[in-house]
Amino acid sequence: MVGLTHSQDSKVNIMVPVQRLVRAIQVSQGEFSLLLVCCHSTVKQTHILHLLKEFCPTEIKEIALPPAAETFYTTVSDLLGSARPQALIVKGLESVTAINQLIVSTNLMRDELRKRFQYPLVLWVNDEILQKLVWLAPDLKNWAACTIRFDLANEQ
């Protein structure tokens, strides 16, 4: 019985932020919005992305930044090409070698993000990247609504 309760609690704990993310993406259709999603587990990330695609009717494109990325705007623009998704999820920030440089340059180019990306932009971050955004790109961080967190407290 304890296992069942724990399992149900885990589902509730993950579905509430998934629903918040779905709502945030749908409300922002056709306009730029910056959404930060914080999760440390790649297994949980995969599960969350599956749930998101299941419950969100919006076309969501995922891209991963390569470790050698030096600028966010140019790298994402190149990876997207001519595609104009309804929402974009960017993963891999934690693997970027020159992450400080990338974050600082992104802060400087934030107006271009707003002009180019007329859809919700979801950045998948961990606490380390989130802290770097606060310190190195406070203006960009302030554009984001509150961070949607997927706690690991119930993970085993």
Score class of each variant (00 low, 15 high):
residue 91 K to N: 06
residue 1 M to W: 04
residue 29 Q to H: 12
residue 140 L to Q: 12
residue 25 I to W: 06
residue 11 K to Q: 15
residue 140 L to M: 10
residue 88 L to K: 07
residue 64 A to I: 11
residue 51 L to D: 03
residue 155 E to K: 09
residue 56 C to E: 05
residue 10 S to G: 11
residue 98 A to L: 11
residue 120 P to H: 04
residue 83 A to S: 14
residue 140 L to W: 15
residue 60 I to S: 00
residue 143 W to M: 15
residue 97 T to V: 10
residue 53 K to R: 06
residue 142 N to A: 04
residue 9 D to S: 12
residue 9 D to V: 09
residue 37 V to S: 00
residue 126 N to Q: 06
residue 36 L to F: 02
residue 102 L to M: 07
residue 31 E to Y: 08
residue 84 R to L: 06
residue 131 Q to P: 05
residue 12 V to P: 06
residue 93 L to S: 09
residue 54 E to I: 00
residue 29 Q to L: 08
residue 103 I to S: 02
residue 153 A to N: 14
residue 24 A to G: 07
residue 60 I to L: 01
residue 25 I to R: 08
residue 42 T to A: 11
residue 1 M to H: 04
residue 95 S to H: 09
residue 16 V to I: 06
residue 134 V to M: 03
residue 93 L to Y: 13
residue 38 C to P: 01
residue 114 R to D: 15
residue 135 W to C: 09
residue 80 L to S: 08
residue 136 L to R: 11
residue 57 P to E: 07
residue 135 W to I: 10
residue 46 T to G: 00
residue 80 L to K: 07
residue 97 T to N: 12
residue 42 T to C: 10
residue 128 E to F: 01
residue 148 I to D: 02
residue 63 I to L: 09
residue 106 T to P: 08
residue 14 I to S: 00
residue 121 L to G: 03
residue 155 E to C: 09
residue 8 Q to I: 13
residue 50 H to M: 08
residue 57 P to I: 02
residue 111 D to P: 06
residue 133 L to Q: 10
residue 101 Q to P: 11
residue 147 T to R: 03
residue 58 T to N: 12
residue 124 W to H: 10
residue 10 S to A: 13
residue 47 H to F: 11
residue 26 Q to E: 15
residue 116 R to G: 05
residue 137 A to Q: 10
residue 41 S to V: 02
residue 124 W to N: 07
residue 129 I to T: 07
residue 136 L to P: 11
residue 140 L to P: 14
residue 57 P to N: 03
